[in-house]
Amino acid sequence: MRWRPIVGTAISFGLAGIAWEAFARSAVLPSAITPSLLDVGQALWGTIRNGTMFVHVGFTLFRILVGLVLAILVGVPIGMLMGRFGLIERFFLPLVSVLSPIPSLAWVPLFILWFGLGNTAAIALVLYAAVFPLVLNTWTGVRSVNQLWLRAASAMGAERQTLFAKVVLPGALPFVIAGFRQAFARSWIAVVGGEMIAATKWGLGWVVFDSKEFLNTDVMMGTLVVIGLLGLAFERLVFQAVENRTVARWGMVKTVKA
């Protein structure tokens, strides 16, 4: 039974590829608009060989990573404080619930005016997209720490600091990681979209948008593949690894063994 999903996946991608290839070569639409897979592969390989793809990927990753780190530095402490102190919760919760549903990309034009085109606007955008899931999940996580653990730890003489570092923080971690996942998914959209609208010179979103001007559909589709693969790689490799190292190892969540 183990080979069945693999074969299924291969067949489904194979069929989709053949269907596209047939459509692309049938010349129903001009081939400039529907490039064949070979063209897409060649275009992608071209950008990899001359190194431009790496620069684009580097810029996009730089923006998203800086934004995410800032979002963690801002969001997790606020979420923690909200979970621990009622006063802070009552102050931040209304603000967060009003700002969180606003799509981050709605802010792009304003951020362009405030921060100019380029890295700062993109990073601010990622920060906006990522901070709310982190705050909300951390807040939920801290509140859902088992009361019994807290009482047990204080009964055994844990100081405030130890209590926090050894009980509250690890206890809330599954939620924080879930929030981080959500934050990444949102910022991935934000950074690609932001790069399109806030046309800078580099970045994956910019490549996709810029290829439109010259009808470089092959480059565009190659870049879309890269965007998809990078997003998938982060989700599968990075987050899965983080989860396995921490909360799964501590036996707090069960991960599905792939």
Binding site: G193, K212, T217, M220, L224, I227, G231, L232
Partner: peptide, 16 residues
């Protein structure tokens, strides 16, 4: 595979 790709990334393709 299609689900996690940001839909917005396809916007220029859809315009073409």
């Amino acid at each position: 595979v299609g689900n996690p790709i940001p839909g917005l990334a396809y916007a220029p393709l859809f315009v073409i």
